[in-house]
């Protein structure tokens, strides 16, 4: 562990951290590196209400907030809830979003920021928040600036971006990742069900689809 290392994860939804980066987050925690999750929304507009239904549009935010806190406790990371509404991030003023994020980064002084790759993250919230996060990091002086690892989700991302720069086999922290995913239980079965192509068990689906995490190293071009 380098001195004063601190990782900040910036995603808009409860469960983004679990599906996208929990294996990597767990590795940092095992090395004793503090990790803070800046979570943009409470996933208020999620669709998975269960069958039979266990949630309504109005109760979902509280349920997901509890799950988010459980997941962060299980990953042993700090949580900051930024209080935006699901699906609306792209309509917020991007400059103000970046300023909001920068205020946290200024205080935490992270060495690494993990966020979505703008334009390659499928959900408009992911794209907008990723762009704001990168803009926030860009506001640091180059010699103070943390690294950025960007998570791309889009199916044909390699066509444009090439292979991801950072590829992690997360087998050694897989159990931690699974625990984080399961903590988001209102969403986990629905989302994993969407990945399911056959009758495989949840564990097997997770192992096959999620045993590996990859990020692109963001490069800030100085003019």
């Amino acid at each position: 562990m380098k001195k004063d290392e601190h990782v900040v994860v910036i995603f808009p939804h409860p469960d983004d951290e679990a599906f996208g980066a929990a294996g990597t987050i767990a590795r940092f925690r095992k090395q004793g590196v503090p990790v803070t999750y800046l979570c943009g929304t409470l996933g208020e507009m999620g669709r998975n209400m269960g069958n039979p239904t266990f949630a309504t549009r109005e109760t979902l935010p509280e349920i997901r907030q509890q799950e988010l806190m459980n997941a962060c406790r299980s990953l042993d990371i700090n949580l900051e809830q930024l209080g935006y509404r699901d699906k609306t991030l792209e309509f917020e003023d991007q400059d103000r979003l970046a300023t909001h994020l920068f205020r946290y980064l200024e205080k935490i002084k992270p060495t690494l920021v993990i966020t979505h790759y703008p334009g390659y993250a499928v959900h408009p919230d992911h794209d907008a928040f990723g762009a704001a996060a990168i803009e926030a990091v860009n506001r640091f002086e180059p010699n103070q600036r943390p690294e950025v690892w960007a998570l791309a989700i889009k199916k044909d991302k390699e066509k444009d971006l090439g292979e991801a720069d950072l590829q992690f086999d997360i087998t050694d922290t897989f159990e931690d990742k699974l625990a984080a995913i399961v903590a988001h239980k209102s969403q986990a079965s629905g989302i994993l069900g969407g990945l399911n192509q056959g009758p495989a068990s949840l564990d097997q689906i997770v192992k096959d689809k999620l045993s590996h995490e990859a990020f692109y190293q963001w490069s800030f071009n100085e003019v």
Binding site: R47, N48, M49, G50, P52, T53, T56, R57
Partner: peptide
């Protein structure tokens, strides 16, 4: 509150 969901419980 009135709602319709698909067979997987999605709104």
């Amino acid at each position: 509150l009135l709602a319709g969901h698909d067979d997987q419980g999605r709104l």
